Amino acid sequence: MAQQSDTPSTATGQGRRLAVIVVGLAAVVVAMLCAFALPSVHSGPHDLPTGVTGGQQSVAAVHKALQGNEWDVSVYDSEDDLKTAIQDRDVMGGIVLAPGQITAYTATAGGPQATAVLTSAATTIAKQQQADLTVTDLTPFPDDDPKGAGFSSAALPMIFGGMFPAVLLTRLFPGHSGLRLRLAGGIAFALVAGFAVTAFLQYVTGSLGGDYLITGLGMSLGMAALVMTLLGLESLIGMAGFGLGAAVIMLLGNPLSGFASGPHWLPDGWATLGQVLPPGASGSLLRANSFFDGTGADGPALVLAAWVLLGMALMFIADRRGAKGVRRSAEEPVVVG
């Protein structure tokens, strides 16, 4: 007997379902475009911390040249004070003014875009004052990777290095019985992968400096923040929770991380949001440990530790809930038919 064709009502229902799927996918594409394009369109110096020192008239001239929302200018008593402020990461760079001579101090490893725009501003000021210009980089990238390409490329491997293990561990050790194995596997992976990635970037490409142990621990903490958060969301909510976490990381965390440029290259609100998400905090921690002897590492380390604890708390709640379900099943009487 031949199968009957779909009724009009069934076809209408399928058409509506298809329309919802198409609109939903289009919305996702638009959301991705907004997340990646808008920060790029609005990128540039935003309240860039900059120091200046010199004579009163010269400093006033610099203030006039660096006015606007792009700059946040601080005046220092001496050249040494300014250099110390740059190395302590209080400012991204600075300008020293003397008769017939201007010196621009930069810290390229703190943000290459900031170095470029500060150098350009110093060049303009030197031309206006008909002075010689000297540019000194106090914290450059390593000689083996002077443009910081390896450092910038670490962002996506770190993000996917948190997502893929969460998926794999969920598939290999599913359900309540595998929850503790997923927890142990997530921590073990973060440690092994963190030190492996750091070793590659530091000893193979020469892109990182600093103490290997400290930098490796920071990298591991960043990966742990990602994988533990995703595992926690999946354990408590299911794959919908994992999908939500992955979307936030990819659509917000990645474009707002300021990984390559530093947070001062994004508008204030976006920059702040990016730094409280794991990718942005991971980049800031890696930058601090690799190039600034740990200066400025406390904030991002605390942010990442909070994400790790959040993921573990979600897994603990899921474990308690699962244990109660197991006990209820064991206590239910067995009905013999």
Rank of each mutant, 00 (worst) to 15 (best):
G194H: 13
G222T: 11
V135C: 08
A225E: 01
A131N: 03
L118M: 13
S207E: 00
Y212W: 08
A190I: 02
A224N: 05
T124M: 14
A190E: 00
V117D: 01
I187W: 13
R180N: 13
P112S: 07
Y212R: 15
D211E: 15
V197L: 14
T136R: 09
D132C: 14
L181Q: 09
L156T: 02
D137R: 15
Y203S: 08
G210D: 05
G161F: 06
S177R: 15
A104G: 04
M158E: 01
V117W: 03
L226V: 11
Q113A: 15
Q128I: 11
Y105T: 05
Y105C: 06
A190D: 00
L179D: 00
Q128D: 09
F173R: 07
G194A: 06
S207G: 05
G148Q: 01
D211V: 12
L156A: 13
I95E: 00
L172D: 02
Q202T: 01
G162W: 13
L179P: 02
T170G: 10
P99C: 15
A116V: 11
G110S: 05
A122M: 03
L191K: 10
A122V: 00
L97R: 03
Y203C: 06
L138E: 05
L183S: 05
Q101D: 12
Q129Y: 13
G150Q: 01
T170W: 09
G218L: 11
L118Y: 02
V204P: 00
A184P: 04
A193R: 09
Y203I: 06
F200V: 04
G93R: 01
T106R: 10
A149L: 10
Y203M: 15
F173H: 07
L169E: 01
P99G: 10
P146D: 00
G93S: 09
G222M: 09
L133F: 13
D137L: 15
L181F: 09
L168K: 14
P146N: 05
I187L: 09
Q101P: 07
A199R: 14
G178H: 06
A109P: 07
R171L: 08
S153W: 10
I214Q: 11
L138T: 07
P157T: 08
G100F: 12
F160P: 04
A188Q: 06
A199T: 04
T103P: 01
F141P: 00
K127L: 13
Q202W: 03
G93N: 04
